[in-house]
C-alpha cells in the first residue's frame, strides 16, 4: 500500500505549479493513493534486462536541413495573443 500524505500532494502540486484549495488537496490525496495502488501492478512485472520503450515508431534521424523558413504566422499575431504586452515584448510580473 502506498502511503500518500498531504505533503506529497503539496510537493507534486508545487512541481506542477497548481494551486489547490484544501478541499482539492483532501480529495486528491485520497484519489492519489488509490491510483498509485492501482498502478502498483507494474512493480510485479519482471523487467530485468528489458529496454524501456519511449516511442514506438522505430524511426531514426528525422531532421530538417538548416534553412531559415518564414513563420506561417506573423510574429506580431503571436505576441498579440499574450494577456499582457508592452512595446512588442511579452509582459510578466516581475521576475525576482
Amino acid at each position: 500500500m502506498n502511503k500518500i500524505n498531504r505533503s506529497d500532494i503539496e510537493a507534486a502540486a508545487k512541481l506542477s505549479r497548481i494551486e489547490l484549495d484544501s478541499k482539492n488537496i483532501n480529495s486528491i490525496t485520497e484519489d492519489f493513493g488509490s491510483i498509485l495502488n492501482f498502478v502498483e501492478i507494474i512493480q510485479k512485472a519482471e523487467t530485468g534486462g528489458v529496454a524501456p520503450t519511449s516511442q514506438v515508431t522505430g524511426l531514426n534521424d528525422v531532421w530538417r536541413d538548416d534553412e531559415v523558413v518564414k513563420s506561417e504566422v506573423e510574429p506580431r499575431v503571436l505576441i498579440d495573443s499574450a494577456p499582457e504586452t508592452l512595446d512588442g515584448y511579452v509582459k510578466v510580473k516581475k521576475v525576482l
Binding site: A11, A12, A13, L15, S16, I18, F32, I35
Partner: peptide, 14 residues
C-alpha cells in the same frame, strides 16, 4: 484547470 487535469498533472509530476 479542471479536477481531472489537476489530478493527472500531479500524478505525472510525482
Amino acid at each position: 484547470f479542471g479536477t481531472e487535469v489537476k489530478r493527472r498533472n500531479l500524478i505525472g509530476s510525482y
